[in-house]
Design a protein around this nucleic acid. Structure first.
Lengths: 348, 348
DNA sequence: CTGTTAGCGCCTTCAC
DNA sequence: GTGAAGGCGCTAACAG
């Protein structure tokens, strides 16, 4: 019942373990007599020999393992990215270790250390992003690394991001076409790179289109439904709340929708909204949601490709890949009413 | 730049590596002079020593690693389970390796072998379930194992399931209270354990309530939106389609809804539906969906607990845990009209 | 073509 | 209290 080892096979075949090792690894050029080779292959099969990856990794300093660290495995966005990377790993003979940092910096650091001491060959990480010390340490150690959803300026490393600034700008432009001039912005954790970029795209557009920039129309919070709910309620309590709102984050968007429903407001009659990021359900919501969707599979694909190339070539690169997001125009944006929301407001 | 080892610390402290090992593992009772202990601790800290888990695992035959195999990481159901298990792992010092079998039996087998040869201390698996050979092999090898969402009768092992049969029965009972007597059943892969159970609960209820059991009202397919779409379209093409439908699977439910929308049918005016399983978005859909929701965190919790107990005690158990599901009564079920759907049907 | 030797980094038993 | 020796299972360099 104890696992079969090279030694076992060697003993049975009357050869040295190293010979067995050579045969089983199909090491080229294989200078082994067909006779012993067949003998070894056959008994290995019969005994269902499985090489001990731990021992192999210890010896070769290569584990054929890569680590993926994401802040929330329950998020469709990160789950989707994980899925693609997992597929590529399967195809290339790597095992993926997915860890959830749970939006928690300390846990993230623990995970990074753990993965390193487990000898993963490379790491893909979507950092929680409060500090970047541990990331920089990896870079300095020349550890194969790809960062998703973030870009550092204090040091250089591979990263894959979306064009959030640009697309946020475009959503504002889109809203102005419907006559909106009073536009809000709701987000979760404000120090998240994509959120910062969306905000700056938003602000830039507000300026360019000559709209009033109102600080009280910009809300920050955490990555939770409750936060979205709270922010949107605050927004609605403003006497002259905006006629359109950009909402950053799926779960925040859901919380915002809940706030509107609870207060009896209608989308898009009372307020138009655009959500970052798309989900399969968005089109089936009571008002099919206009969203910005990220090319999840491209992001995963590119992240894996960067990491893989680095691992096989043994060189450390610092490429920055930008994946283009797209806008899904559905029903949550409408022409602004002459006297926006007034009826509804006074009916409450 | 090369990692710090016990040897390095030993050399610096003028002690033997084994002494360093003893100190750093805080092995009790620690018969080490405070002097050398402090010296070792200090230099270990200074050099940021991280034990090589690979070497340690090879030596101790314990990797402090557990494997989780699920058929789809993008499914909120499995992602939720993974999240809970990951949390428990973090708390207990284990590292979780999540692998996605992608509903593919062969990939699942490859993953199992890979995890075993990587030396994981235990496995939690939601099997794809075409064959159970590889699962039985694990059981025979006395590998710590917990099966989620499935129950075997050919051999005994730990499993955590939901009370699908019972709850399916109850949903039919619930529908009859609204006057429905013609009830359909749509599912994905029919050989999935929960699907089988739901179907049998459905059939039992149909009999018990004296409803007509119509084979053409039962649809099978795959775990995909398209499959749900196709099945529901077929159902709608029946001249006397049912007034209520049970739908097994989130993504299948979404496909079904799409089919109804495309054909212009209204929920629940034309057809009442109940979806297995709940998702956060269900209540925000155009018709808030009546669903059966599984206690995802309980399932994960129980699975981890079973595995953990087995691993620390070194005993192999074969417990069967049933987690109770609940019904979320929302808006997708309504009183059956006198002449159900007729107007709508002829308006098309 | 195949065997021998020598570790990878760590832990554990047995000495002293 | 601490050191020495041995080995987990495997691979790599060197013999022959």
């Amino acid at each position: 019942m104890t696992p079969v080892t090279l030694k076992d096979i060697a003993r049975i075949c009357n050869v040295h373990p190293s010979t067995v090792s050579r045969v089983l690894r199909e090491q080229e050029p294989l200078k082994i007599s067909k006779n012993t080779k067949d003998k070894i292959l056959k008994t290995a099969e019969k005994l269902k020999y499985q090489p001990d990856q731990t021992a192999r990794a210890l010896r070769t300093k290569k584990s054929y393992t890569i680590g993926l660290i994401i802040p929330n495995i329950s998020s469709p966005y990160f789950a989707g990215i994980a899925k693609v990377i997992d597929e590529r790993c399967g195809e290339t003979g790597y095992t993926l270790i997915i860890s959830d940092s749970n939006e928690n910096q300390e846990k993230e650091i623990r995970i990074v250390n753990d993965l390193v001491s487990r000898g993963v060959d490379g790491i893909i990480i979507a950092p929680v992003q409060e500090s970047d010390k541990h990331i920089r340490e990896l870079v300095e150690k020349k550890y194969p690394l790809v960062v998703i959803d973030r870009c550092f300026n204090r040091f250089k490393t591979n990263s894959v991001i979306s064009n959030d600034e640009e697309i946020a700008y475009k959503t504002v432009a889109y809203l102005t076409k419907f006559g909106h001039r009073s536009i809000g912005f709701i987000s979760g954790r404000p120090n998240l790179y994509p959120v910062m970029k969306r905000l700056s795209g938003y602000e830039k557009a507000i300026k360019d289109f000559g709209l009033p920039l109102r600080k009280e129309f910009v809300f920050k919070g955490t990555q939770s439904l409750e936060s979205g709910y709270r922010s949107f309620n605050e927004l609605l309590s403003l006497s002259d709340f905006p006629t359109a709102v950009l909402i950053s984050g799926t779960i925040i968007t859901l919380g915002s929708i809940k706030a509107m429903i609870d207060k009896g407001y209608k989308i898009p009659e009372d307020i138009s909204i655009i959500g970052f990021t798309d989900i399969p359900y968005a089109q089936y919501l009571s008002t099919p949601l206009t969203t910005v969707s990220h090319k999840i599979s491209d992001i995963g694909e590119e992240a894996f490709r960067l990491l893989f190339n680095g691992m096989v070539s043994g060189t450390i690169t610092a490429d920055k890949i930008v994946v283009e997001s797209v806008m899904n125009k559905r029903k949550s944006v409408a022409e602004m009413a002459e006297k926006p929301s007034l009826t509804t407001r006074f009916n409450l």
